[in-house]
Simulated assay, not measured.
Amino acid sequence: MKNALLLALPLLALATVSARAEPLQVGISVGSLGNPFFVAAKNGAVTEARLADPNAQITTVSSDYDLNKQINQMQNFISSGDKIILLNAADPEAIAPAVASAKAQGIVVAAFDVAAKGATVTAMTDNIKAGEMSCQYLADKLGHKGDIVIINGPHVSSVIDRVKGCEQVFAQYPAMKVLNDNQDAKGSRDGGFAVAQTLLTRFGHIDGMFVINEEEALGTDLAAHQQGRHEMIITTVDGSPAGVEALKSSTSLIVATAAQNPFEIARTALRLGLDVLHGKPPAQTTVLLPPALVTRDNVASYNGWVNN
């Protein structure tokens, strides 16, 4: 009996080592890998995962803002045995059942960039502040008067909060009139171009535009140039490489952006998720990262996403 036990001990030790050696598995679902914001976010998450486990297995997929597609992605992450799901929710409310299913399997769901109902932890930009910052600059540049258009985006918390922050600024100035604020440009350059074409045709004069992200803003800028409309200025949110180039261009109508740090947003979300996974739940389950205003005056000193 004693000999049998002694023979079994090495096997038990090997089993324990094998169990400990299982690599960290992380599933990441982002809005669109065609957007450089999510490429930077993915890089931040991968960096943090590799620090935690050099052999971490990381799968990154694009939901393309399609709820059903993202639900299927969540189910695949669950089936694959992922320990953490990093989630950029296509719909912050409707994704709740998929989040609950993952948590029921012991998976930590870390939301990033936008909220997701039921998520274990969340990290995102303070988007109300980003909207306020961008629109305060717009209001100041226009002398607190003029006709304004807000080009909206996907119905997710980050966009909703940016528009909310922006409209809170404009509400302070009776001489600022918001002509339209409900057109969804889908978060993309093509969407921004299409919506801007319609709005520029509809309104013969626009003094300023707040556009919810730089991809939309770049499309808006192109549409304005194609229609020979140069009377307005544009402010936005992101701080992307393309946005920086627009700020440096004397012909662009984009004059300011509230810069985010997607690398650090996703990295923070994964770090919070790892803490929970290791039995150390954070004091704050939601972390808001501050934006920074980048304008033509200070763009030369802005480090940008690529230097994270």
Rank of each mutant, 00 (worst) to 15 (best):
I160T: 11
V114K: 01
Q183W: 04
A185E: 01
S301D: 14
Y65S: 11
L6N: 05
I107N: 10
G27Y: 09
G192I: 09
L33R: 11
V287W: 02
Q168S: 08
P174G: 04
F193Y: 04
V237C: 11
Y302D: 05
N88W: 06
N3G: 02
C135L: 00
A259I: 10
V195S: 00
A119Y: 12
G131S: 04
I254F: 08
S62K: 05
L222A: 15
Q227D: 07
E216R: 03
L87R: 10
D161M: 09
M133T: 06
G27A: 01
V178S: 12
S18W: 14
M124V: 03
V211R: 04
V114F: 12
V26K: 05
M232Y: 08
D221E: 06
T120F: 09
F193W: 05
G44W: 13
Q183C: 08
D113G: 01
A111F: 04
D66P: 07
M1L: 12
H155E: 05
I107S: 10
L5G: 02
D64G: 13
E231S: 12
N182Q: 15
I128C: 14
L138M: 05
V195P: 01
L274N: 12
S29Q: 06
T235P: 03
A8D: 07
L138E: 00
A256I: 13
G279A: 12
Q105I: 01
N35P: 08
S79Q: 14
T257A: 09
V156D: 07
A40V: 02
A21S: 15
S29W: 05
L51H: 14
N88D: 07
R189T: 04
F37L: 05
D207E: 00
N308Y: 10
Q25V: 04
S79I: 02
N3R: 14
A56V: 06
Q57N: 09
A19G: 06
Q168T: 12
F112P: 00
Q227T: 03
R267W: 00
D161T: 07
P54R: 15
P241V: 11
D147F: 08
R296I: 06
V109L: 07
E48A: 10
A194G: 00
N303G: 06
L277D: 11
N303L: 14
T251N: 07
N308G: 02
G27K: 08
A283H: 04
L247I: 14
M1C: 12
N88K: 03
A217P: 02
P23W: 14
M133V: 02
N76D: 14
Q172A: 05
G143V: 01
K248M: 11
A224L: 04
V46H: 03
Q25L: 10
Q284H: 07
A89G: 04
D126I: 01
I78K: 07
S250D: 14
L51S: 15
L222T: 09
E245M: 10
I107Y: 15
K117N: 13
A111S: 03
A246M: 13
